[in-house]
Design a protein around this nucleic acid. Structure first.
Lengths: 213, 213
DNA sequence: TATTTAATTAATCGTATGATTAAATAAGTC
DNA sequence: GACTTATTTAATCATACGATTAATTAAATA
């Protein structure tokens, strides 16, 4: 990918993209997602990005700064896309659309599930508060309201608790991805090209049928 | 709890229980579950257990030794109980029994979900291999076979993929617990005494109805 | 051309950590 | 009572880590 000569000291030409900054963000995302914050040293990140360790402090101030920059850089687009889908939730296929976008996004970005696991779900996750504000209070509340709307429309049985129903939906949609490496071995699943589609179709049906009147 | 005088140097009386060892295991379980392996220093564990840091090496050889001892001490009983329930899976309520034991156990031992998250589900979890061998290959295979049996009995629709069905079941049963601190805030759930029972009843119904013919 | 600014490098600092050791204490063993 | 064994303590070691600094390079600016 990087066929140019190695970065050399000295002021870069005008209009140059900050490739070093981006290399650091990407290396950090991969390593932090796989090993966790504490287990990764800034020296490792620098080596993976093929830059000098001091560059981390030059661009991000500290290890913590690099980490937080990587997190916002990673999750902001996801949050925005999900929110927009949930916002346009008037049509009857909104639930199905949400399922598809959510699961396809997770499937297409393999580093997302482990990061969400560490930063949102796990105890002491640094993104939990931010995530709850950004997505949950907004998106989660919207998800609950979407389910209530589906209930009044008669597509979801009326005696189901909306919050618990939303939780079931998220469970079905998220867990298969965060647990993918385990479930593969446990249930002997092969990674075929159509696995993701079969998983989504199956999950969608289990949920919709499970909460139908 | 510990009203006796502080432990003093010198050989203990015969038949004395190794309280220091047990205190270390319990302190380690709480801290490691909450903060993760790297974030916890042996000095913290020793302080929480009110013993000298060198005791960790005396009893367990190393931090790693303490950690692994704590993990086996914690998960061996769980594995055994789940396996035994899955083994006696001839009666028609086996699925319901599994749901109840599984979710009640997780609900009754709050340190289990975060530990499972870190050690089994998360990338690089130290227990993953062992867990897959112990529970998954055995228990997971049994779970899949149980579902196949339910299919031939006509209680689960025949066109459902057994592996994906097992995955849906585990998703519904596990995720609410590992994500409990988040979902509480996201969906505005209050921790009432009957929350666990309502959660189990709801989840059980969503699954059974979702996979019914 | 002279000066300033942006980027990169190598070297180093202070600290927290896991680990180890030798000494001290007290019960068991003969 | 001599001495062996089990447990606890305090002190110390080596190291890896995050962080900082001063020097170096080259483009921008004037």
């Amino acid at each position: 990918m990087n066929t140019n000569t190695r970065k050399q000291p000295g002021r870069p030409p005008a209009g140059a993209d900050q490739t070093v900054r981006r290399q650091l963000l990407e290396a950090a995302r991969g390593l932090f997602a796989k090993q966790g914050y504490d287990a990764v040293s800034i020296r490792e990140v620098a080596e993976a990005a093929q830059v000098n360790p001091a560059m981390i402090h030059y661009y991000f101030g500290s290890k913590q700064g690099l980490y937080e920059a990587m997190l916002t850089d990673t999750f902001t687009p996801l949050i925005e896309r999900l929110s927009s889908v949930l916002a346009a939730a008037d049509d009857p296929s909104a639930l199905r659309n949400f399922f598809n976008l959510y699961m396809h996004t997770l499937g297409a970005n393999p580093w997302m599930p482990p990061l969400i696991l560490r930063e949102v779900v796990a105890e002491g996750g640094r993104l939990r508060g931010w995530f709850i504000q950004q997505f949950a209070t907004k998106g989660g509340g919207m998800l609950t309201r979407l389910i209530e709307r589906e209930q009044t429309a008669g597509r979801i049985r009326a005696d189901a608790d909306p919050s618990l129903t939303a939780l079931s939906m998220v469970s079905l949609a998220v867990f298969p991805f965060v647990a993918m490496p385990v479930t593969r071995e446990v249930f002997g699943m092969r990674v075929k090209t159509d696995y993701l589609d079969r998983l989504i179709a199956h999950t969608e049906r289990v949920f919709l049928q499970g909460v139908s009147p």
